[in-house]
Amino acid sequence: MEISRKAILYKTHYGLNIYSHVLRHYYPDETVLSLSGRVCKPAKNPFNENKFSLMVSVVDNCARHTDTENSIPDGDVFDFAKLHFKKEGQELHEMINNELHLHIGEERNFYGHKSIPETTEETQEVQKPRIRIPQCSYFKHPVSNIIPSKTINLTEVFNFIRGDSFAACTSTLRNIEDVKEARKYKAYNFDYVTFSGTFSKRNDKALLSHSGLLTIDIDHISNIDSLKDSLLQDQYFETELLFISPSGDGLKWIIPIDISKAKHQDFFKAVSNYIRQTYQLEVDQSGKDISRACFIPHDAAVYINPKYLQ
């Protein structure tokens, strides 16, 4: 079975995860890429004496690079990977698939969750599934307001997070040192959503429609960039949305679940145990509630599954 470029880009955030994976081989204890929108800040180039000359950006849904000193030719992520892996064509694609645990063409087996079969680009063009964008309820601040103002979809939440609507209050919150004051400020100044569905009011019993999404909230992370990369490459779960929490030291990981196979709470318990065993991290237990409120912060580097941007 051939592994296509398109399938790899789909699984690796346009190829940015491949750049990160290669660079971590050379700089294991450093933040190797810092993304702002679709452009990365200058990064060390292992093929140019470790100088900060590597520029990476996303163009037409594919990560590309240039070197400010022209030490390597301009190219895309596959050209860069070829410099490291010393392979090309299908051999390179297979190496990337194995090294990054993309599982392209394989079935997944966590509560029956399966990956979409991916073969050639021609096959994908024919199959092009119709994407259903999950919907959730949107609530205006303060958090004591439990009546939603509207229903929005995941792409709209993504645009809110990467936009400037909550940039000022996010910055203010992260400069408040007192924990109680910070909690109070967040409760009164941030709008929020219920990722797991739409509601007539914020209460599990008032659920109108489950979105098929589960919110995993991980706090007090020492290396956010590293964990982001790991979650985006997770072997069992596709990432639907991933962003830094309002506090700045945690991540909100939004993943798909199939509630026809298990209850929301059962999925939450299983995923919490999985994260504990796989990543040695504890999950905020509030995620077990279907009506769990998730504050909307500003994060210019928020990730959304590329399938929603097509």
Rank of each mutant, 00 (worst) to 15 (best):
W253D: 12
L309C: 13
S34F: 10
Q277D: 15
Y308H: 14
Q265N: 09
K307H: 01
K180G: 01
F268S: 05
T68Y: 01
H93A: 14
P46A: 03
H220Y: 08
N189V: 07
E177G: 09
L173P: 07
I224Q: 06
I221A: 06
T194C: 11
V39Q: 10
F158P: 10
L232G: 06
Q277S: 12
E99Q: 12
D249M: 01
L309M: 14
T170Q: 10
P129F: 11
L173V: 04
Y19K: 09
H220S: 03
S36H: 12
V39W: 01
Y185K: 04
L154F: 01
L232Q: 11
H210P: 08
V77S: 07
V77P: 05
H84R: 06
V126S: 12
S57D: 09
L213S: 06
N109T: 13
S165A: 13
S149Q: 11
I161A: 06
Q127P: 00
A262L: 07
K269T: 13
R132G: 01
F243C: 11
L54K: 05
T123R: 11
R183Y: 07
I133K: 15
N17I: 01
D178N: 15
Q265K: 11
L33N: 05
P28D: 06
E240D: 10
A293T: 02
K269R: 14
D258L: 06
P256L: 11
I224D: 07
K186Q: 13
A270L: 05
Q127V: 13
L309E: 08
D76F: 02
F166E: 11
T278I: 01
